[in-house]
Each structure stands twice: as structure tokens, then as C-alpha cells.
Design a protein around this nucleic acid. Structure first.
Length: 484
RNA sequence: GGCGCAUUGGUGUAAUUGGUUAACACGCCGCCCUCUCAAGGCGGAAAGUACGGGUUCGAUCCCCGUAUGCGCUACCA
């Protein structure tokens, strides 16, 4: 029996460049499941495709996982008892087990080239076959024929001998029992001609050797489970428990793709989605805490506490950017100011702002946080606090040169003398005094000040604006219009 | 085409072992707050649970069929 007191799960991406948001959710579910059950979360790199290898992809993957906050217990860089955690470094292990399968007669050599297979498929489809697949002809090769071909140096693959006229059935933790007819299962290639294993083979060997108790992965793997079950059986092993999570979809319900927006976790982070918000949002795509739970904002810790595999949904979930934006805005509004500022500095700098006055940047972030959905919107909002010239249209100029505006500026300017530092709280009473002194109130009081300070008719409350600009700058801008 | 999986408002989801005016959130609309814009508060429209059959006193929930969608069908993962 699988040892359920010692739960081990893995996230096993192939390093093809970036961390797909669907992959991130798979990683998250694995992580939550592991932490919830006091188990181990393992990162394994499935780099068996030499063609698709991308330079730096692994480093990027690890970095992204880290910035999201999903720490793994075993894997690249940190090691562990069951390494190596790169499949490309486990070739001798696969070789050993493929030998076993070969000698047991559960696998066999096949010498067709990729082109020949392609041709075979085409022909089958033309002839109206229900399903095109390898014709299993190499099963009939004699031992002598095989040895002869190998001696001649003809390239070969090793295929799984799928039993015919049978059924494979397994229990998916999310979907229940799934049954598939083995006549529809191809004699899958286990070892490619370049000596690397295929996913199907390596995955089974590694999951067993690494003592993975639960395989939690995307739905796209569901129909290949029989191949894996057959392998476990042939090797005399017990299969891991399986859970296939639903896909994340585009608004048109096709599989989430690049064409319809961002799919790379890195892109979301770069645009200023907070890691916590991303995690929160994605956790709720295909999972929910169930009855009696109305809130939607959950920290990673809370998710760990609440997460169970049984509550994972069975159908695909559309990635709703609007809701992500709302959730991210919620996080931005309530986030720790220091942490928020840290995230904002590089964004401001990249946008061309001078960030040497970090305190000012912080004040800016504080002022704009209720206005933005994501951090890359800060620069646009920050503009008004950094411009040295106020540009106005004719109507606005007229308003500022009016008699009442002048009186407001004059009064305000005088009152400002008594101040060293303007705070959000102290500016409002100041304007009240101006109102008392001049008798000007409402729009006629506030709008001139707003225009003078920002050049805009809309924006945050004036106390906030004044606080961010600082006393000197407020004074400078007011005087500028007083003397206009 | 074959096989597999799925199907509750536009979207994400809820609904104790079949009995609810089918709940919550995003979005949308309106009102309030207010110098403005956001934020916030309050309220509203929006599904009778894909469709058609069963089973049952009663079905979103169980069974069958159809439709639709998605996935798989590689010496890719």
C-alpha cells in the first residue's frame, strides 16, 4: 500500500522557457497538498527532449517559483535523498529498467525510422482506420534478427508491449473511475533512438524511485495513464495515486494560449501582479473551500490549511483577467507599504523616474495605490507628482486667474508659512481656514488648488497630493499661480 | 474520425446523505459619500442548473441518450 502518512508529490515541468500559468497552478496544487498533509514537495526537471531544450530555462523556472513563494523540499540546487532531480542525469537508471522490461518481454526493439512511422500513419488514415498507430510489426522480429540489426548499427527505439483485448481501469482522485480499452493504446516508445527515455517511461520510473505518493498534474495526461499503469504492473510496482486537474481556458474556452494574452507567470509578475494575488487567484481557478466560506482573499498559509484534493473542480476554468485585476487591486490596497515600495522601485526606475528620493517614491505609491490594478500603472499615476511645469488649457487658466482663485492662493500661501511639514491630516484643516478667511468654498476653493498643484481636474484627495508633493513644492506651485 | 473527460447567471464558484425564493464573488447598472476621480457603503438586473427522457411524492444532485466544448490520439512534454 502507498504510505499515506508520508506524502510526497512532485512538480515536473519540462524546461521549455517560461512557467506557464497552468503549470504554476499545477505546482501550487501540489504544494498546497503537500503542505496540508505535512508531506514533501519535490521539483523534478523533465529534460528528456533534446530538441526543445532552452538555455537558462531551469534557472528561470526556479527563480519564478521562488518569487511566487512555492518552496520545494527536494530538487535542483538543493538536492535531496532521491536525486538526481534532472532526468537527463538519470539515463543509467532508465537503462537498467528498460533492460528488465526487455528481458521480461514487456518491451521490444523496433527499427522503423520516424519517417516510416509517419508514412504508416498516413496510410492508415487514408484507409479509414479508427485510430492511426504503430502496427506493432517489430513484435514479430526474432531474437537473431534484432541482434543482427543492432550489430549493423541500425538506430532503434524500444516500445512498450501493450497487451491486447484488455482494459485498464484506474481511480482518479478528482474524476473517479476511468477505463480505457488497451486496443486503443499505442505501443508507446519508451526509449528514443537518441538514448533518452520518453516522458511516459521516465515519469513512471522516477515517480516510483522518488516514492511519489500522489501524481497531481494537468488533465492533458488523463488518457495516457493506462500506459503508465501498464508499466507499473510490468515492473511489479504499485502505481501512485492519480489526480488530474482541469485545464485553464481562454475566454473562448479553448486551452489557455499565448495568442489571447499572457500565459507566462513571469509576464504577470513583470506587469506588477503581486505574487500573493496571483497565487490567491489561481488557487480559486478549479478549486474552492466549499460551503460556509464566503471570502475570496486567502494567504498562502490559509490556502494550505483549507486545501483538499476532493474539492478540486472537474471542468475547465476560464482565466478571467478582470477578476485577477480586482483581486490584485485588493492586495495592493492592503499590502505592507514597505514591501509594496520595494516592488515599485524597479518599475518606477524603468519608467524613467528618478528614484533617489526613495521616501518620495514611497509617498507616491501610498497615494496611488487605490487607483491601480497592477504596479505597472504606477508611473502614469505618478506623473503628477514629478512634473515641474503645470500645463493648463484656456478654461483652466481662466479659472486660476479669477479673483476668487487669487484670494484662495494668497490666503493659502500665507497659512503655509506656519508649516514645516504637510501631512494628509493637516492639509484639510488648512483649507478650512482658507475657506473661513475668504468665504470661498466647495468647488471654487478646491478646484483652483487642485489645478495649481496637479494641472488636472481629477485625482486623489488634496491632502494626499499635498503630502506627496511636500511643503516646499506645494508652496512653489501655489506662488507660481499667485503671481501669474 | 476514434477514445477519454466535462457541462449551474457573461466569468469564477456554492448548494448537508435528492426537499433552498438556486447562495457568494468579479463584471455591469443605479444611488449615497465627495472639490474631482478612484476607493468605500447600499441596492438592482442577470442562471431555474446544456437539451431530451427516465427513477422518485420530489432532482442542480441518481440513471440513460443527444448536443456542445475541451483533451489525447508523436522517437513533445
Amino acid at each position: 500500500m502507498t504510505d499515506l502518512t508520508n506524502i510526497r508529490v512532485r512538480f515536473a515541468p519540462s524546461p521549455t522557457g517560461y512557467l506557464h500559468i497552468g503549470g504554476l497552478r499545477t505546482a501550487l496544487f501540489n504544494y498546497l497538498f503537500a503542505r496540508h498533509n505535512n508531506g514533501k514537495f519535490i521539483l523534478r526537471i523533465e529534460d528528456t527532449d533534446q530538441q526543445r531544450k532552452v538555455e537558462g530555462a531551469v534557472e528561470n523556472l526556479i527563480k519564478t517559483l521562488k518569487s511566487i513563494g512555492l518552496e520545494y523540499d527536494e530538487g535542483p540546487e538543493i538536492g535531496g535523498e532521491y536525486g538526481p532531480y534532472f532526468q537527463s542525469q538519470r539515463l543509467d537508471i532508465y537503462k537498467k529498467y528498460i533492460e528488465q522490461l526487455l528481458s521480461q518481454g514487456d518491451a521490444y526493439y523496433a527499427f522503423e525510422t520516424a519517417e516510416e512511422i509517419e508514412e504508416m500513419r498516413k496510410l492508415q488514415i487514408e484507409q479509414g482506420a479508427a485510430q492511426a498507430m504503430y502496427d506493432r510489426s517489430a513484435r514479430n522480429l526474432t531474437k537473431e534478427q534484432v541482434e543482427e540489426k543492432i550489430k549493423q548499427g541500425i538506430p532503434y527505439v524500444i516500445r512498450l508491449k501493450v497487451p491486447q483485448n484488455s482494459e485498464v481501469s484506474f481511480n482518479d482522485l478528482i474524476r473517479g473511475t476511468v477505463t480505457i480499452d488497451t486496443n486503443l493504446v499505442d505501443d508507446q516508445v519508451l526509449m528514443k533512438s537518441d538514448g533518452y527515455p520518453t516522458y511516459h517511461f521516465a515519469n513512471v520510473i522516477d515517480d516510483h524511485l522518488m516514492q511519489i505518493t500522489h501524481v497531481i498534474r494537468g488533465e492533458e495526461w488523463l488518457t495516457s495513464v493506462p500506459k503508465h499503469i501498464l508499466l507499473y504492473k510490468a515492473l511489479g510496482w504499485e502505481a501512485s495515486l492519480m489526480a488530474h486537474v482541469p485545464l485553464i481556458l481562454n475566454p473562448d474556452r479553448t486551452k489557455l494560449s499565448k495568442r489571447q494574452g499572457d500565459v507566462a507567470t513571469e509576464d504577470f509578475l513583470r506587469k506588477g501582479y503581486l505574487p500573493d494575488a496571483l497565487v490567491n487567484f489561481i488557487a480559486l481557478l478549479g478549486w474552492n473551500p466549499g460551503e460556509g466560506e464566503n471570502k475570496e482573499i486567502f494567504s498562502l498559509e490559509e490556502l494550505v490549511k483549507l486545501f483538499t484534493i476532493e474539492r478540486v473542480q472537474t471542468s475547465g476554468a476560464v482565466f478571467n483577467l478582470e477578476k485577477l485585476n480586482w483581486m490584485n487591486a485588493e492586495y495592493i490596497k492592503n499590502y505592507d507599504m514597505n514591501k509594496l515600495a520595494e516592488l515599485a522601485f524597479p518599475i518606477m526606475e524603468n519608467a524613467g523616474f528618478d528614484i533617489t528620493d526613495r521616501e518620495k517614491v514611497k509617498r507616491v505609491v501610498f497615494a496611488v495605490r487605490t487607483y491601480i490594478n497592477k504596479l505597472d500603472e504606477i508611473p502614469v499615476q505618478a506623473e503628477r507628482y514629478y512634473k515641474s511645469n503645470i500645463e493648463l488649457n484656456e478654461m483652466q487658466k481662466e479659472m486660476l486667474s479669477s479673483d476668487s482663485s487669487k484670494r484662495v492662493f494668497e490666503s493659502l500661501s500665507n497659512k503655509l508659512n506656519g508649516f514645516n511639514v504637510i501631512t494628509t491630516e493637516s492639509f484639510k484643516p488648512l483649507l478650512n481656514e482658507v475657506q473661513k478667511e475668504t468665504g470661498i468654498k466647495g468647488k471654487n476653493l478646491f478646484m483652483p488648488v487642485r489645478l495649481a498643484l496637479t494641472g488636472e481636474e481629477h485625482g486623489p484627495e488634496l491632502g494626499l497630493v499635498a503630502y506627496v508633493l511636500g511643503k516646499d513644492e506645494v508652496e512653489r506651485r501655489i506662488k507660481m499661480f499667485l503671481n501669474m
